[in-house]
Design a protein around this nucleic acid. Structure first.
Lengths: 144, 144
DNA sequence: ATACTTGCAAAACATTTGCAGCCGC
DNA sequence: GCGGCTGCAAATGTTTTGCAAGTAT
């Protein structure tokens, strides 16, 4: 969690205007640990900022994400993707093209269950993210 | 990958009618390793089954998933969820209520990168799934 | 025969976009 | 003042649903 002044500096560094809405969204998100959706944030913020629109929340979340100030939990793909292999395995997801590769590695299958109080673990999955061979090559060939 | 007869037995065991469409969706999914979306599967299947509707593909994928014959990759939540903590950490996701808890465990941060040919890893995340304390308790109190 | 499924179309969501007017810097 | 942001509304894209007609067992 950053102080309001640290946030101000971050925005100035990146040459991105800091508006009331952006500050409000960021502070609301910092104030909760339940990983809210855009919709949920919007509902909460409406109380203090009745004119705030849902579209602005979406745009702001995207901006904050690009600034590296917030993270998205889970899937980089909005759309569900399916797999005929139900046995335990893991995935490498390409951030550039969305390609998903299977990984079979017994070491990844044997991770210790978390010591979260009361959470009953039935399984786990590991996602590596990065660039697939094709996209990594393309990026080396044509930088920027 | 299961043979057509094994699939037939599986459906019979579960008392679920096996239709041409279901067999087609399952065999198409088994035949590819690119983790297609419902839409992608529908496009491919249209060639052989022009009358197959997208809604049926969705319903079939749901059915196959409930039978444990296929897996969904990634997020159990369709909707994006956000996190103000950008430092490396991991998550426990409740399958019942969707609650997402943070996990901080340095052992999970130091996983070996996959030996997939050419994949450039920039990071990884671990999701444990199961039941949160609340849902686990509810299920013990009122079984079924 | 009959219960369950399919296909169609429409609805329900989640998210993005275009644009006029407003606001931070 | 100016460029970028906001809010509105409409568009887009994905997934779900209701229902009449068809089909597997």
């Amino acid at each position: 969690m950053k102080t309001r002044d640290e946030v101000r500096v971050l925005f100035k560094e990146k040459m991105v205007p800091l508006t009331h809405q952006r500050l409000a969204v960021y502070e609301e998100l910092c104030g909760r640990r339940d990983h809210p959706s855009a919709e949920t944030l919007h509902v909460s913020l409406k109380k203090a900022y009745p004119s705030l629109s849902l579209a602005t929340v979406y745009k702001t979340l995207q901006t904050l994400h690009e600034l590296g100030m917030i993270a998205r939990v889970d899937s980089p793909a909005a759309q569900a993707r399916f797999d005929a292999i139900v046995e335990t395995h893991h995935h490498a997801v390409c951030s550039a093209c969305g390609r998903i590769e299977d990984l079979f590695d017994p070491r990844l299958d044997r991770l210790a269950a978390p010591r979260a109080k009361g959470f009953v673990v039935t399984g786990h999955s590991v996602h590596f993210h990065g660039l697939c061979a094709k996209c990594a090559k393309a990026r080396r060939t044509i930088p920027h």
